[in-house]
């Protein structure tokens, strides 16, 4: 009887020790993932030469990665506007002429996932008779803003 009791206790101890060893092998890992985003874009777009009144179109590509909802805004950089008329098309297909201040190009876009999202931004430029013949360089910038 005593022998059986010793064997029984030994089995219980073994089970407890085994559980303890397993418990020691479990590590709780805690990590906080912060809201963040990334962007990349092409460097230069050269539009075709245009006659006054003529319109040319080009599509820009911007890659966005984000784990939060985001807006994409566009405006002139440095306050120097283009000659003629420069318009961009928003995500709803509407054309907007760029002027003072920036405007929302894409609103409340969802998180992109690991692959990111390739945003295509159609833009068009119309030359005018009030612009002297020349080669003009102007700059627009895109601002990625988190959604509140």
């Amino acid at each position: 009887m005593a022998k059986k009791s010793v064997i029984f206790l030994a089995l219980i101890l073994t089970a407890l020790l085994s559980a303890a060893v397993q418990a020691q092998g479990v590590i709780t890992v805690q990590v906080e993932i912060l809201p963040g985003f990334s962007i990349s874009a092409q460097q230069t777009v050269v539009l075709e030469a245009v006659m006054p009144g003529e319109r040319v179109e080009e599509t820009l590509e911007i890659q966005v990665w984000s784990n939060v909802a985001w807006d994409l805004r566009v405006g002139y950089h440095g306050g120097t506007a283009a000659p003629g008329k420069l318009e961009v098309q928003d995500s709803e297909g509407l054309w907007h002429q760029l002027g003072s201040g920036d405007r929302v190009l894409m609103r409340k876009q969802p998180e992109t996932g690991a692959a990111g999202v390739l945003v295509q931004v159609p833009l068009r430029f119309t030359g005018g008779f009030s612009d002297a013949p020349d080669t003009y360089t102007f700059q627009i910038e895109f601002t990625l803003v988190p959604v509140l």
Partner: peptide, 25 residues
């Protein structure tokens, strides 16, 4: 000659460059 040539510089990096910021709020 008669036309208006326009060069539009759109961004600062080639498409493969990537700038990341965190946290954003």
């Amino acid at each position: 000659f008669w036309g208006l040539a326009a060069v539009l510089l759109v961004s600062w990096v080639p498409l493969q460059a990537k700038l990341s910021v965190s946290p954003v709020i």
